[in-house]
Write a protein that binds this DNA or RNA. Structure first.
Length: 819
RNA sequence: GCCCGGGUGGCGGAAUGGCAUACGCAGGGGACUUAAAAUCCCCGGCCCGCAAGGGCGUGUGGGUUCGACUCCCACCCUGGGCACCA
């Protein structure tokens, strides 16, 4: 028999799939559509990662199964190619990022093709292609026209190493997500996208999609909706000065507000400078706080700092008391109104601050009633309850009191979000130029759509400047342009877009990747959207996922996209860790290169191994040895199937004379399990089920021969393996005489009648402990089973003469004798 | 601190409330071979026992149940996300 030769088989089918464009998605198919999506890779110089393989194999399995189920499947791929590593490489070597990108995408394409993914290679997109970023710029202009893209001077997170401004999302515990350098705060004029305008819908519409629960939770937390109220606190003895507005989720505790705090950025101090008696001290504190990096704030822990603003008092609108006002950096300028009412009895932070500065702590909410919860006991108490020390509201439930007190003091209900507007400027070369010019006469003027794309010019030096200006600003002939409005002298915007821009809409482009009249034709979008299933990394749950949902919703509002939510279903794969459980990294030297695995074992083995290694959503360490298990399985499968295919007529007859029923039942149970498990992304148990079946089929039955399967059943067996090991399955399929591509053959039908075995294993228990197991005919009744159990020797021994009090019977499973 | 996960053999892990440890890796024994590799067969939770058999076992402590890895309560450990968000 011919040996399993993955290299030869894979080379052959890979070439045919590509040449014949077998997996090209058709826009005009009468079949129902299915859009399977994976995150397109950033084509780094390191090449494909085992993590890509895990995600792409999983969705390839889904895509291939869907084709077999009769769907017209779109499974596209492309390159998210703008970004810092390529630029840094260009800075170091002087090689143009375009050239580096070309080289890297060529490598990635070769690697992806070597794994046999059923991508539609005719729809490849590349975010750095002017034909692509033209439309990224076009979408930006639509944001601009709707007032959702705006420029604002604001403190940004500045990475001194990357020399780039970062979005809040890119700062992880005060450090640059990319290089780990502590970020600084700098004032800069930045382009912003008003994602907060969509906060409510980004939150509410999560109910309309099927994301993994933990993904939804992360989005919900990131958006961070708080329902509360805005209340005004008058400044004492200051007619004409507007009141201090605070945001609170606990207006019911207003009677306990014994002081106020404003953020260091709050305008109050400037407004009332001449009344402040300790202005020097206050100004000093504000200066220090402004310069503080996130890193320093974290290093201080929760230790509260602050300074009282002397000379100014605020009036509690409920009690009419005059209360002191502090400036302290535990209040953030960027959230709410930048000012709070402090209720030390019912807020942990206010409590800590009040203790430190010896401020009064007045309890106004009791757990049950003032009597049951003596004043001062276990404060701070942050839960709800019954009001006390609150004048006319005493005894009221805190939920009711929230509404009543807001009404009584003339406040208004208010919803706040943690989500901030998206800092959309980068001061770098390798990104989409922002299509705006600054005219001496007309000010800010958007580039007309007909002049798109604003091409990225070729330059000599990619190095960003220490002043934070983009390297583009040095290219005079590019920067200086005629104003599109008046023709007068104007300058181009030299900031570029963040690397999140291109990936915020790429799934739309796949539906119509070559269109040069629109980002995609409406009928193509209508045909393919929405994405049915999107798999990607957990690390993109709060950034890319939210951004792309936002862009899609915006385009939906323009009428340019047919669905409000881009993705029906979103799942995530766990990381592939290095040996020993550490993250794979070059510095640790534990990076596994898929190329060498394909070279040594074959693509099908790598695919099966990565799907078998453990639960799909869990991080699993790589194990060189375990790959062999996947390889052995495929080889055994090959030998078994080929043995049957090449068996002589006599051999076949002899095999088939053997009792088929249990094997057939096992096959049908496996068909069901593999199908169900693919849908639930339980690829590991799908594969173990196929392994078990193969073990059962090849187990010698005394005559040294494996069990035979009729051709029909062997075909079904090859089909369910197909999505996992497509090259080998296709080869076996064609050796069985199949002239077609396996991927378009119908997925085997599970027959519940065939899946039931005639016999079952009955467990006999005494007092819940297993005493024996016996084979019995399926479906026997309680009486019979009970009699068998009571007659069983081991059961009788365990009973030791005791009379059974009760007998529990579970059909086809067990008899439990309770004595 | 808050929000999600997860604790099962030497390892990765499997188990609609019903045979705990499937499947795979590693390990031990055997067959084949001049030999090795590959392949095939058999054995692998712990303790007592020559064995038959018995006892103990899914992070810890309780509970519900005829029966708990699975459900409930409390706790410990651990991975991830958020974090002075009023």
């Amino acid at each position: 028999m011919e040996r399993y030769d993955p290299k030869e088989i894979e080379r052959k089918w890979r070439a045919r799939w590509l040449e014949e464009k077998v997996f090209a998605a058709r826009d005009d198919s009468p079949k129902p559509k299915y859009y399977a999506l994976v995150e397109f890779p950033y084509p780094s110089g390191d090449g494909l990662h085992t993590g890509h393989v895990r995600s792409y194999t999983a969705m390839d399995i889904v895509a291939r199964k869907r084709r077999m189920e009769g769907y017209n499947v779109l499974y596209p791929i492309g390159w998210d190619a703008f970004g810092l590593p390529t630029e840094n490489y260009a800075i170091k070597t002087g090689i143009h990022p375009k050239i580096v990108t070309k080289k890297n995408t060529d490598t990635f394409r070769r690697q992806l093709q070597s794994l046999g993914f059923s991508f539609d290679w005719d729809r490849e997109v590349n975010t750095t292609d002017p034909g692509y970023y033209r439309w990224t710029q076009w979408i930006f202009l639509q944001f601009y026209k709707k007032g959702l893209a705006y420029k604002e001077k604001m403190p940004i997170n500045w990475c001194p190493s990357c020399k780039i401004g970062l979005a809040n999302e890119e700062v992880v515990s005060g450090k640059c997500e990319r290089c780990g350098t502590p970020v600084e705060r700098r004032e800069k004029e930045q382009w912003m996208l008003a994602i907060t305008k969509y906060a409510d819908r980004l939150l509410a519409d999560l109910d309309t999609v099927e994301y993994l629960e933990k993904i939804k939770t992360q989005q919900v937390n990131w958006i961070g909706k708080s329902e509360g109220a805005e209340l005004g606190f008058a400044v004492a003895d200051a007619d004409g000065v507007p009141p201090l507005i605070v945001f609170t989720t606990r207006p019911d505790t207003l009677f306990g507000a014994t002081y106020m705090v404003v953020a260091p950025e709050h305008p109050l101090v400037h407004r009332l400078e001449d009344r402040i008696t300790n202005l020097g001290e206050v100004a000093e504190y504000m200066k220090k706080a402004a310069a503080k990096t996130e890193e320093e704030r974290l290093a201080e822990g929760r230790e509260k700092t602050g300074v009282e603003i002397k000379g100014i008092k605020a009036v509690n609108p409920a009690t009419k008391e005059e209360i002191p006002v502090f400036v302290a950096d535990y209040v953030l300028g960027s959230y709410g109104t930048g000012a709070i009412m402090a209720v030390p009895a019912h807020d942990e932070r206010d409590f800590a601050f009040a203790k430190k500065f010896a401020l009064p702590i007045r309890q106004v909410v009791a757990r049950h009633s003032a009597e049951a919860h003596p004043a001062g006991a276990d404060l701070p108490y942050t839960g709800g309850g019954i009001l006390m020390n609150s004048g006319p509201f005493d005894g009221m439930d805190s939920e009711a009191a929230k509404r009543e007190i807001v009404k009584a003091v003339g406040g208004r209900a208010k919803t706040q979000f943690h989500l901030r507007d998206w800092v959309f400027s980068r001061q770098h070369y390798w990104g989409e130029p922002i299509p705006v010019v600054f005219c001496e006469k007309d000010g800010m003027v958007p580039v007309p759509e007909k002049d798109l794309p604003v091409m990225l010019p070729d330059i000599e030096k990619y190095q960003p400047t220490d002043t934070g200006e983009s390297p583009l600003s040095a290219i005079r002939e590019w920067v200086n342009v005629a104003c599109p409005a008046c023709g007068g002298p104007a300058r181009r915007e030299t900031d570029t877009m963040p690397n999140w821009a291109g990936s915020s809409w790429y799934f739309l482009r796949y539906t119509d990747p070559k269109n040069d009249k629109a980002f995609a034709a409406p009928e193509k979008l209508k045909h393919w959207m929405q994405v049915d299933w999107y798999n990607g990394g957990m690390e993109h749950t709060t950034l890319h996922l939210l951004y792309s949902r936002f862009w899609n919703k915006f385009l939906y509002d323009l009428g340019a996209v047919p669905v409000s939510e881009p993705y029906m279903k979103r799942t995530s794969q766990g990381m592939v860790l290095g040996k020993g459980g550490d993250k794979m990294s070059k510095s640790k030297g534990n990076v596994v290169n898929p190329d060498s695995v394909v070279e040594n074992f074959g693509a099908d083995t790598l695919r099966v191994y990565e799907m078998f290694m453990g639960p799909f959503d869990q991080a699993i360490p790589w194990d060189d040895k375990s790959i062999q298990g996947a390889g052995r399985f495929l080889e055994r499968f090959w030998n078994y199937a080929l043995g049957l295919i090449e068996a002589t007529k006599e051999e076949k007859e002899r095999y088939e004379a053997r009792a088929q029923q249990p094997k057939r039942a096992a096959l049908h149970r496996t068909i069901k399990k593999v199908g169900d498990d693919i849908e639930a992304m339980k690829f590991n148990t799908a594969i173990s089920a196929m392994m078990s079946l193969l073990n059962e089929l090849t187990a010698s039955e005394g005559d040294g021969h494996a069990a035979a399967l009729p051709d029909e059943d062997l075909r079904a067996l090859i089909k369910i393996l197909g999505p996992f090991a497509p090259h080998m399955a296709q080869e076996l399929w064609s050796r069985m005489g199949g002239a077609t591509y396996l991927d378009f053959e119908p997925w085997p039908v599970y027959d519940p009648k065939l899946a039931v075995e005639d016999e079952t294993t009955l467990v006999f228990q005494v007092d819940g402990r297993v005493r024996d197991t016996v084979r019995a005919a399926r479906g026997i009744g309680e009486e019979e089973a009970r009699a068998m159990a009571l007659a069983n020797e081991k059961v009788r021994a365990a009973l030791a003469g005791r009379e059974p009090k009760r007998v529990i019977f579970v059909k086809d499973r067990l008899v439990n004798v309770v004595a």
